[in-house]
Nucleic acid binder design. Sequence first.
DNA 1: TGTACATCAGTGAACGCGCGTTCACTGATGTAC
DNA 2: TGTACATCAGTGAACGCGCGTTCACTGATGTAC
Lengths: 205, 205
Amino acid sequence: MGHSQLAKAQNHQRIVEIAGQRLRETGLHGIGLAELMKEAGLTVGGFYKHFESREALVGEALEAALGYWQAALQSEKGPTFAGLIDDYLSESHRDRPGTGCVLAALAGDIARADERTRDLCTEKIREQIELLAGLAGGGSGKSGRALAILTYSALVGAISLARAVNDDLLSREILDSVKKSLRRRERDRKQGVRRQPGKRAQRRA
Amino acid sequence: MGHSQLAKAQNHQRIVEIAGQRLRETGLHGIGLAELMKEAGLTVGGFYKHFESREALVGEALEAALGYWQAALQSEKGPTFAGLIDDYLSESHRDRPGTGCVLAALAGDIARADERTRDLCTEKIREQIELLAGLAGGGSGKSGRALAILTYSALVGAISLARAVNDDLLSREILDSVKKSLRRRERDRKQGVRRQPGKRAQRRA
DNA sequence: TGTACATCAGTGAACGCGCGTTCACTGATGTAC
DNA sequence: TGTACATCAGTGAACGCGCGTTCACTGATGTAC
């Protein structure tokens, strides 16, 4: 319980990390500072030694949470399109919003948030789409980007619905069905792209 | 400002309707009773002559709002799959969450809501999927349902992302791109189904 | 049709609680000599 | 290496505000005679 600079930095990071989880679990207004600080092993009073306001913490936490997801995706050293879909639409992801995709958990809240927060998310969404488009196929054409946007939308929507739904059977059906549809979509496109030199070859096969 | 039974019923309906809009606009915890009653031309005190609690109002409002969407879809007398997609992914829908799809606006909040609310939404989601599956094609096969689920997920996700995004260009791109992708998907499937008797006919064309 | 009365939708103020924020204080940290 | 001192992370209580809920009261509604 020292007051060293190191301890402060560690505490700061811990608060941000916990906030990132709880915000995704309970919504942007779902948790109070007292509870948050307690969970970090501290008391409320100290909060303002770290952040200017609750809003400032939310900003930092969202930024970190968005970055975390990004990192997780890229660190998988060359994740595949199909692998990414399977991860995203897993029951594990559905049941752990706290460590999952920020947009799936908070899209509604973000749409109503201040401009700075929305700026942040806009850039992250842009990056995600580009990442997906890159994975979708070597082609730099528009269809890769279109597939990326469709895929991203379907992922976010499917997880949102699967979480909203109360019936485990329906919830799983949503995850599995979208998983299969998206996988097939990518497969179809890849085959189309690879046989590019002669389009007639597709018909012969 | 009478106290008649008729007036009460009208006030009740008005409160529910306004709540349905404001909740979709500001989230399940985004608006207070005082403001709500004021907007309905009443004062806070009278609230409990209509509802047992705030929670009860939210339940009624959500049920009405979900029903409203359902009705709008069906009253379009035989809406088409493509028409439905265009309506859902319109800028008008994006910019008016208050009168739009409950799930697109509140999926996050609903996932965290009490069981009764989630039950309600689960049934509505089931109905929507069946409605879409019915429109997707005459075939009663599994692929119609899979397309319905993919479509529904993509719709909810696309509108959620388009609302979260701050950049109007990217927002429109998401709407338009998903619109096109889904339209094509349905077209492809319809062609496949209609030429069922002889699969070879597809290759000849 | 007219009159007395019970009902109850709606009013406006007050209550109580939770939560973000502030503040005086503590004591370990780290620096200047 | 020791010592005196300034800094500041963290404490715990208090403040103020907003919001859901309660309550005594009002007066129009609608009913019984």
